[in-house]
Every structure is written in structure tokens, then in C-alpha cells.
């Protein structure tokens, strides 16, 4: 799981252009929205594209993502259970 979490952090930094950030700067359990990284609705859509492209997970309705996109830990958990590649 730790490996997947690290990989997700690296990928998210890349696709969201989180310049000047390293995986160490992102806490695995910290909220991604609001307080934490301050991501927004477009970032969610970009993460949905990432999940589809890299792990073959299709999330048609962004509303489904509410529970999934809380933190790196919740995304990693969802990916490990649903990944197709």
C-alpha cells in the first residue's frame, strides 16, 4: 500500500502541476480539499482522468468520488480494490 500511496502522490503532483512540491510534502491522511492541498473541482476531474488512464478505473459521475477523494489514503484504498491495470 505504501508503494501505491507514493506512486499516487508522484502522479498527482505531476498531473496537477503542484510545482515545488515533493511526495514528502503531502501527508497520506491529510484532506486534499479545502484545508489541505486546497484542490478544487477541476483537480478532481484531472484525478479521475489519472485513475482511468493509469489504473483502468472508470468513474462516470464525479459525485461518486466524494468519499474516494478525501485523502491519498482513501484514493489508494479505492485504487487497490478496483484497479484493472
Amino acid at each position: 500500500m505504501e508503494e501505491l500511496e507514493l506512486e499516487l502522490k508522484q502522479e498527482i503532483i505531476k498531473v496537477l502541476n503542484l510545482e515545488d512540491m515533493t511526495p514528502d510534502d503531502i501527508e497520506t491522511d491529510a484532506p486534499l480539499f479545502g484545508e489541505g492541498l486546497g484542490l478544487d473541482s477541476i483537480d478532481v476531474l484531472e484525478i479521475i482522468v489519472l485513475l482511468e488512464k493509469k489504473y483502468g478505473i472508470k468513474l462516470a459521475n464525479p459525485a461518486e468520488g466524494k468519499g474516494i477523494f478525501k485523502s491519498i489514503a482513501t484514493i489508494a484504498d479505492y485504487v487497490s480494490k478496483n484497479r484493472k491495470k
Binding site: 477541476i42 476531474l45 484531472e46 482522468v49 482511468e52
Partner: peptide, 8 residues
């Protein structure tokens, strides 16, 4: 995989 942020 069209990118939403690039489209905007």
C-alpha cells in the same frame, strides 16, 4: 483521455 484542465 482529454484533459479537463487543459481544455479550460
Amino acid at each position: 483521455y482529454p484533459s479537463p484542465s487543459a481544455f479550460i
